[in-house]
């Protein structure tokens, strides 16, 4: 297993920071890609951030009311070693991800 850290992404419109309103996931929780993970407020609007990754949440950064700068760590996932996105494995990364998502849908049915 590998830990994968995601920083607060560039939110566009020249924004450099966001305030955490509420976390929608917690450490230990398994999340799907694109699942909403946190509510944030910027100087312009409030938004939900979708998860960039499927995996188990290891850590979250910023309590409600805290400010996080763009580029600072926001969330850390634990993922299998072969999906950690190491340079050179990117093409391999695509196919398994699709299979995982397909089987997840079948399971729900």
């Amino acid at each position: 297993m590998t830990e994968l850290t995601f920083p607060l992404p560039d939110l566009g419109e020249g924004l450099i920071e966001a305030t955490v309103l509420e976390w929608l996931v917690e450490p230990g929780q398994q999340v799907e890609r694109n699942q909403a993970i946190v509510e944030l407020e910027t100087s312009k609007s409030a938004l939900e951030l979708p998860s960039p990754q499927a995996g188990k949440v290891v850590r979250i950064h910023g309590a409600p009311g805290d400010t996080v700068n763009v580029g600072e760590p926001l969330i850390v996932f634990e993922v299998p070693d072969d999906t950690a996105g190491i340079v050179g494995t990117v093409p391999k990364d695509e196919a398994p991800k699709r299979r995982v998502r397909l089987s997840a849908v079948l399971d729900e049915d």
């Binding site: 509420e22 929608l24 509510e39 944030l40 407020e41 609007s45 409030a46 939900e48």
Partner: peptide, 8 residues
Amino acid sequence: HTNVVTSR
């Protein structure tokens, strides 16, 4: 007024 919009 701004941040109620995302409220679950």
